[in-house]
Design a protein around this nucleic acid. Structure first.
Lengths: 175, 175
DNA sequence: CCAGCGCGTTTGCAACTGCAAGCACCGTGA
DNA sequence: TCACGGTGCTTGCAGTTGCAAACGCGCTGG
């Protein structure tokens, strides 16, 4: 239980790297980490910190969120349907364009599956360790097993986007 | 400005905690970390790993993403089109495929704008970050069939660290 | 007065991250 | 043949995380 998903994240990184056709040293340089450390990360011998993960994500040109989810550091909705859902929900494109995008995306996915049949890392997203429904973002408090008093949530906005969005200094909140 | 974000994240956590009106020990217990460590984190003396951050986020009932962004471990989720965000965040496609999708999507958008420029002010979340005006033509999107414009692949080079985005770690380790 | 309980903080240490240096291997070319 | 550059991997070590134990402080109350 100490570090079971480490291998998963390592495989995932290696897979992304090989897909990008860059060497370990190249990615290490791009990410700003040392090559031996990246090697150890990819083989699951080390558990990279978030900072390193972030750098690797940058080096791989993928979102840090993807890596965090892979590393089990973030319970995110399925990144699979993310693109498809976004495409379907988009209101700026026509039906035909929508279908084209969906086709392209799915063919990309299929293509990758064909080239790298070791796509088990793809399903590693089911590594949810928390059985709770991820309905936390809704306005209503979860209230299921909260060790916090309910009145806590009275003036407590579970909407971090408002404060996070502009990199607001925490002190400015207290008028 | 070596590691000021640590203090920032600490203050942020403390603020969230005091707003929730829970004690340091309570949050520590809820988050599953030790109280002294949480104390040090809040005062900026320690830089918590992503795992700890995730735990703290759970204890605070805020999204881990908020903490990651605060900690500078994650670029703020771009509020531009959901489709672009989803494509950028997708970890199951290669960088080239990602660029292709983005190009196609943007060319669709451009195409639609040319035909119906009034559609611009339709939604609130418009693309705020278009750092690179994708001048590459790609104007002929894949029509009805065979939606895989391979000519789009031609000019793409997996060149990491060329123009990822600003906001990299301030410290350069080329000592 | 001291006992007990809560708060946040300090201290010392095991365990770990992350790196510099170096290793073993493979392909190229003089 | 050896030198050169490329790949990834192994090895010590400094610096750090994260925790258990203990501390100082304020409060309640016998």
């Amino acid at each position: 239980m100490a570090l079971p998903k480490v291998g998963s994240i390592g495989e995932y990184i290696r897979e992304q790297r090989t897909q990008a056709k860059i060497s370990l040293r190249q990615l290490a340089a791009a990410a700003g980490v040392s090559n031996p450390y990246l090697s150890q990360i990819e083989r699951g011998l080390r558990k990279p910190s978030a900072e390193i993960l972030n750098q690797i994500a940058k080096g791989l040109r993928i979102s840090a969120q993807a890596l965090y989810v892979q590393a089990g550091l973030m319970e995110d909705r399925e990144p699979d349907s993310d693109v498809l859902a976004a495409i379907r929900a988009d209101g700026f494109i026509t039906e035909r364009q929508r279908q084209v995008l969906i086709d392209i995306y799915e063919s990309f996915r299929k293509e990758n599956r064909a080239e790298a049949p070791d796509e088990n890392a793809q399903t590693a997203k089911n590594a949810h360790s928390a059985p709770e429904p991820r309905e936390r973002d809704a306005g209503s408090p979860p209230n299921d097993e909260a060790p916090l008093p309910e009145e806590v949530f009275a003036g407590f906005e579970p909407d971090p986007a408002s404060s996070v969005n502009g990199h607001v200094t925490p002190e400015t909140r207290e008028g």
